[in-house]
Amino acid sequence: MSSDLLLDRLVDELRPVRPSNPRRQLAILLCLAAVELAGFLALGTLRPDVAAALGRAAFWWKMGGLALLAAFGVHIALGSFNPVSSPRSGLRRWAVLVAGLFLVGWVIDVAGQG
């Protein structure tokens, strides 16, 4: 079998693929996050001292830092699905963000706000 014939047979049944829609992907991720949050709250596993924790800088550092890491990670993951782009620069920025969050946590700990 010639290679031209083989290639023709392989591509005969191909159909165009719908391009990815980042808004649709983000909407799906937000819905999944809402379902997960609802399940977490329904289980009643919230900290018993959450009222006291809301006044501490360490609590907000943890919540904000995790939200930033998650949002940036989702952005990098969605970008990595594009075959023409490389997530390498996004991963470097994510690593810088992690280092910055560690630095902020260290400053909060040294200041005695934790």
Rank of each mutant, 00 (worst) to 15 (best):
V17Q: 13
I28V: 09
L29H: 01
R9V: 08
L29Y: 00
L10M: 15
L32P: 01
R9A: 13
L7D: 09
Q25L: 08
P16R: 03
V35S: 05
L10Y: 09
S20N: 08
R24W: 08
F40T: 06
L32V: 05
L10S: 11
G39A: 09
I28T: 03
A27Y: 01
E13S: 15
C31W: 07
P16E: 04
L32M: 11
A34T: 05
P19S: 05
L29M: 02
G39P: 00
L6I: 15
P16Q: 08
L7N: 14
A33C: 04
C31P: 00
A38C: 15
L5N: 13
L6A: 14
A34G: 02
E36H: 06
R23N: 11
E13G: 11
L5K: 12
R15Y: 06
R18T: 14
A27F: 02
P16V: 02
G39I: 01
S20P: 02
S20Q: 07
V35N: 03
G39F: 01
N21G: 02
A27E: 10
D12R: 15
C31R: 03
Q25N: 12
L5Q: 14
N21Q: 11
L7A: 14
A27S: 06
I28D: 02
D12P: 00
P22E: 12
N21W: 01
F40R: 04
R9D: 08
R23G: 06
D12K: 12
A27K: 03
V17T: 11
D8W: 03
E13Q: 12
A34Y: 01
E13W: 10
L32H: 04
V11F: 15
L29W: 00
R9T: 04
L10H: 10
Q25W: 02
L30E: 09
L5A: 15
A27G: 01
G39N: 06
N21A: 11
L30C: 04
A33I: 01
S20T: 06
C31F: 08
V17H: 02
P19G: 06
L10R: 12
V11C: 14
G39M: 07
A34F: 07
D12N: 10
L26Y: 03
R23F: 06
D8F: 08
D8V: 03
N21L: 05
L29E: 00
E36A: 15
R18C: 04
P19N: 03
G39Q: 01
S20R: 14
P19E: 04
A27C: 08
C31T: 11
A34K: 00
Q25A: 08
Q25H: 08
L29Q: 00
L7V: 15
V17R: 13
D12F: 11
A38T: 12
V17A: 10
V17S: 06
I28A: 07
Q25K: 01
L10K: 13
L29N: 00
S20H: 04
A34H: 03
L26H: 02
R18S: 07
D8N: 13
C31K: 05
D8C: 09
L7T: 13
L32S: 06
F40Q: 03
V11S: 13
P22F: 10
Q25P: 00
L14T: 04
G39K: 01
A34E: 05
R24D: 10
I28R: 05
A38R: 03
L26P: 00
L5M: 12
L30M: 07
